[in-house]
Amino acid sequence: MLHLRYFVAVAEELNFTAAARRLHMSTPPLSKRIKDLEHEVGHRLFDRSTHHVRLTPAGTALLPIAQDVLEQVNSIPWRLTEATRPQRSTVFLGMPEGVHPDLRDRVNTLAERVRERFEVKRWPGATADLVTAVRDGRLALTLARLPVTGPALGQLEQLTVMSERLGAVVPADRFAGREAIALAELTDLPYAASPDITPAYFDQLDRELSELGVKKRIKITHAGFGAASEVISSGMAFSISMLDEKSPMHGYGIENVTVLPFTDFHPRLETALLWNRDRGDCGDLEELVTSVREIFSEPIQI
């Protein structure tokens, strides 16, 4: 092993003096060790002169082999630790944008509860993509905005974990001093839908608004949540978003934008945890799902 370490150092430095310095030894003993190795393997490994050091074809062939052997030996302590420690799996939990901090706290509680058996890591994305990843087995479970649509939903278990009241996002100057608003007061303003991270829910909401007299629309494409705030701030539209001031969605607010509760309309956005039923029932996630059911037994109401 020492001879291989000496060889790799010289092969990487192509300079005996530099390699000896790296190995904290003098050059003559290093040169002797290389000659001993050449004798042992039966091949000359370096072309040496007073001006250069080059690998021979045999040396070139030996270098990746030696590096691989040393890497394997260096990993022995880590491999031994992993082999003797209790089995702990890494699982990924999907997180859509705008998750309320109270729900994040519950997720943290779950991660702490199962940390001896699972390492829970978060994975961001839109609801539809996250649900597909759970269905395909790339994620263990995911938070998802309801309703969830798409193929193979029958194989997924769904547990509602949060219900959030929604309010009207309106120009602040137009509704100054107001503590609430009626939907009927907004029928002259176009509705600016949020980006399509929860298309099923907002399609449903769009239909409800149309039935209630809100006919005008502004479609904002290829833009984030801040884009809706821009048109609302200018007085050109209104939107609908989470009412609770602790919601991360309030971080997209800018000047002249406020969120007011409705007096005659009561939209709510529900969030659920989803996982593959086969993995949760007597499968590899059974212990994790048991903790999920305990921690999220009562949905958070905001």
Rank of each mutant, 00 (worst) to 15 (best):
H43S: 07
T90S: 02
R54P: 07
A66P: 00
T84W: 08
I76M: 09
L62A: 07
L55Y: 05
H43M: 01
R85W: 09
Q72N: 10
H52P: 03
T56C: 04
H52G: 02
P64R: 11
R88S: 11
G59S: 06
V69R: 05
S89P: 01
V69A: 14
H43V: 07
E82Y: 09
L45S: 03
L63P: 00
W78A: 14
L70Y: 03
P64A: 11
R54Q: 12
T50Q: 13
P77F: 13
L63W: 01
A58P: 01
L80N: 08
L45A: 03
N74Q: 12
L45E: 00
G59E: 06
E71H: 01
R54N: 12
T56Q: 01
V69C: 11
T50N: 11
E82I: 06
L80A: 14
L62T: 02
G59Q: 07
P77T: 10
V73R: 07
R54H: 14
L55W: 04
Q72T: 03
S89D: 12
P57W: 06
P57Q: 10
A83P: 10
S89I: 05
S75W: 00
R88M: 08
R85F: 12
L80F: 15
A83H: 13
S75R: 10
I76W: 03
P57F: 06
T84F: 11
H52T: 04
F46G: 00
H43I: 02
Q67P: 00
T60S: 05
T81Y: 07
S75Q: 09
S75M: 05
D68Y: 15
R85A: 15
A83T: 13
P86M: 07
D47F: 15
T56L: 05
D47H: 15
L55H: 06
A66C: 02
L80K: 09
L63E: 03
R44Y: 05
R48N: 04
E71F: 04
T90Q: 04
Q67I: 10
D47M: 03
A61W: 03
T56V: 08
A61Q: 09
T84N: 09
A66W: 03
T84K: 03
R79H: 13
E71G: 09
F46L: 00
E71A: 10
R54G: 10
L70W: 01
V69W: 06
G59M: 08
D47R: 15
I65H: 04
A61T: 00
H51N: 12
V53H: 02
L70S: 05
R79S: 11
R54A: 10
L80M: 12
Q87S: 13
R85M: 13
A61N: 08
T81P: 05
W78D: 15
T50M: 08
S89H: 08
W78N: 15
L45M: 08
P57T: 02
H52F: 07
P57A: 06
D68I: 14
L80C: 12
S49C: 04
R88P: 13
R88V: 00
I76T: 14
R44M: 12
W78S: 14
